[in-house]
């Protein structure tokens, strides 16, 4: 089974700050991490390979330093990593990103299964996975919470929904996006760390794999961010109750009654 895991290096958003002057995100000094949702995709790929043999390839599109995130994947079992980095892809939105990734998947060749995280915590769009499937014209299963059964030709998976879940059969080639219920990612072993350290990460360019220049980067992206601003504060004043617990409880209940909530 040849599996590609699409991973992304993201800023740790809990640290994200807005520059009060420029109203832009401060990126300097913000730690970059492997998108947490992608760790589940890597683990699932490694588990499938343990059962069916084959190869797990971690793929990312991003700046040169994203090679570190690929090495993280190798440390927990991926066989190799492919970094797609080039100035021409800067500014790609989810349309263009999923296009480049789909071309890279075709260039890798013979891929049965593509695994993605549910979403990336910086963009939070959850669009890239289905986008890749659309570009490739492959089947997809999103929000996968469990692989019930696997054969060399396809998977039986559970898809999580707001109102429960469903079970479906997807034939290869297919694209899955996974949620965190699917497995418990392993931590790297010493051997894994050594493999990661030694691994050479090839850097691919869009032109090498036949990406159409008008479909990548800013030019290839239908969406444009035209403004960023901090979220507006909630209007209205705060009534503070700071007496004894009993007094506060009484005052609160009285207020809820006044508003006909109780």
């Amino acid at each position: 089974m040849k599996i590609v895991v699409c991973i992304k290096q993201v800023p740790a958003t809990s640290d994200a700050k807005i520059d009060p002057e420029t109203k832009r995100i401060v990126r300097e000094g913000v730690k970059a991490v492997l998108n947490p949702f992608d760790t589940y995709a890597v683990e699932e790929a490694v588990q499938l390979r343990a059962r069916f043999g084959g190869e797990v390839i971690a793929l990312t599109m991003g700046p040169e330093r994203a090679a570190i995130a690929l090495k993280e994947c190798i440390s927990v079992g991926a066989d190799r990593g492919v970094l797609h980095a080039d100035r021409a892809i800067a500014g790609s939105d989810t349309w263009a990103t999923s296009y480049v990734l789909s071309q890279a998947i075709l260039a890798i060749g013979g891929v049965d299964l593509v695994l993605c995280g549910k979403q990336a915590i910086d963009g939070d769009t959850a669009q890239v996975g289905p986008g890749i499937a659309a570009h490739l014209g492959w089947l997809q299963a999103t929000y996968v919470m469990k692989v019930d059964d696997a054969t060399a030709t396809g998977l039986r998976v559970r898809r999580m929904h707001e109102d429960g879940y469903d079970v479906c059969d997807v034939d290869f080639p297919a694209v899955l996006t996974v949620v965190k219920d699917i497995n418990v990612p392993r931590i790297p072993t010493l051997r894994g760390r050594l493999a990661a350290e030694k691994a050479e990460i090839p850097v691919w360019k869009p032109a090498d794999i036949g990406c159409a220049p008008e479909l990548i980067g800013l030019d290839g992206s239908p969406t444009r961010v035209v403004r960023t601003q901090p979220p507006p504060p909630r209007s209205g004043t705060t009534t503070v109750l700071d007496g004894s617990a009993r007094d506060s409880a009484r005052a609160l209940v009285a207020e809820l009654r006044r508003r006909s909530i109780l």
């Binding site: 939070d124 769009t125 669009q127 996975g129 289905p130 659309a134 997809q140 929000y143 707001e162 239908p222």
Partner: peptide, 23 residues
């Protein structure tokens, strides 16, 4: 932006060569 909507509409946006903004 439900689990179903988020599965369906990105696929449509790619096929229709349209911009899509989430959430």
């Amino acid at each position: 932006a439900t689990t179903r909507g988020r599965a369906l509409i990105p696929r449509v946006a790619v096929m229709a060569r349209a911009g899509l903004t989430a959430d």
